[in-house]
C-alpha cells in the first residue's frame, strides 16, 4: 500500500494551507537550486533543516527517505573529485583529487538535501489530494491537476492488483528462481496486472460518471486563508528573497 506517512500530524505545517506551502516551497527551493554560493546554500540548508524539525516527522522514516536520496549525492562525492579536473589538484598517492570537484560535489549535496528537507517539511505534510486541489486553486490547468490526482489514485489500484496476483501465485507454491518458468510467470503476472488495472480503472470511471462526474473535481473543503497562513507565506518569501539577494551578490 502506498501511504503518505508524513501527511498526518498537528504541527504548524500540517495545519497550514496547501497553497501557501506550494508557493513558499517552490520559491525557496528555486532559490536553493539556482544559487552558486556556498554560504547561501549552507544557510538555506540550515533553514530547511529547521523547517523539517518543526514538522516533526517520525525519525526512522525520514532517515530512510534522506538516505535514499543521498545514495545519489554520495556517488557524486566520490566521482566528481576524481574526474572534475581544474587547477587546484592535490596528489594523494595514486589519485589526483580536484578541489574544485570536491567543492562542487559538496555544494550539490548541500543543495539537494536543502531542497529535499524543504519538500519534506512543506509538501509532504499535505496529502496528495489537498496538494492537487491547492494547485487547481492556484489556476493550474484543471486537466493537469486531474491527471495528477488520478495517476496517484491509479497507482493504488495497480499496486493492489499486483499484490493480489502475486499472492495468488505464492499461494500456489510459486518460488522465483532463474528458470524459464519464473520468467514466464512474471510476464503473465505483469500482463495480467495491466489488463486488470485497466478494467478496474474503466469500472471506477463508470462509477464516477454515474454519479454525475463531468471532468471537474469539486473539493469538499474550501479552506480559507488564515492569519497564520499569510504569516508563513510572508516569512518563507522573505527568507527566499534574502537568500536570493545574497546569492546574487556573492556568486561563489
Amino acid at each position: 500500500m502506498i501511504s503518505e506517512p508524513f501527511s498526518s500530524g498537528s504541527t504548524l505545517f500540517h495545519c497550514s494551507d496547501a497553497r501557501v506551502k506550494v508557493i513558499g516551497g517552490t520559491v525557496l527551493s528555486l532559490v536553493l537550486a539556482t544559487t552558486t554560493s556556498f554560504a547561501v546554500a549552507m544557510i538555506g540548508f540550515l533553514f530547511t533543516s529547521l523547517l523539517l524539525l518543526i514538522s516533526r516527522p517520525s525519525p526512522g522514516l525520514i532517515l530512510k527517505r534522506i538516505a535514499t536520496v543521498n545514495i545519489f549525492t554520495l556517488f557524486l562525492l566520490f566521482s566528481l573529485p576524481l574526474t572534475y579536473g581544474g587547477a587546484d589538484i592535490v596528489q594523494l598517492q595514486y589519485f589526483q583529487i580536484s578541489l574544485d570537484g570536491m567543492r562542487i560535489a559538496c555544494l550539490i549535496a548541500i543543495k539537494t538535501n536543502g531542497i529535499l528537507f524543504c519538500f519534506l517539511a512543506l509538501l509532504a505534510t499535505s496529502s496528495t489530494v489537498s496538494l492537487g486541489h491547492a494547485l487547481e486553486r492556484l489556476r493550474l490547468p484543471r486537466k493537469l491537476v486531474f491527471l495528477l490526482l488520478f495517476s496517484y489514485r491509479q497507482l493504488f489500484v495497480i499496486h493492489q492488483e499486483y499484490l493480489r496476483l502475486h499472492r495468488a501465485a505464492q499461494l500456489r507454491a510459486f518460488t522465483p528462481s532463474n528458470s524459464l518458468h519464473t520468467y514466464r510467470t512474471y510476464s503473465h503476472l505483469f500482463g495480467m496486472t495491466l489488463v486488470k488495472s485497466w478494467n478496474r480503472a474503466e469500472r471506477v470511471h463508470q462509477a464516477m460518471i454515474l454519479r454525475g462526474f463531468d471532468g471537474r473535481l469539486i473539493p469538499l473543503k474550501q479552506p480559507q486563508l488564515r492569519k497564520s497562513d499569510y504569516l508563513l507565506l510572508a516569512s518563507l518569501l522573505l527568507i527566499s528573497l534574502i537568500l536570493a539577494g545574497f546569492s546574487l551578490n556573492n556568486p561563489v
Binding site: S127, V204, R211, G212, D214
Partner: peptide
Amino acid sequence: HSDDQLFSPTVLEDVAFGPLNL
C-alpha cells in the same frame, strides 16, 4: 464490487462526490 465504486480517500469525500456534482 464495492471496490470499483469507492475512489475518494475518505468516506465523507466519497459520499459527498455525487451531491457536489449535482
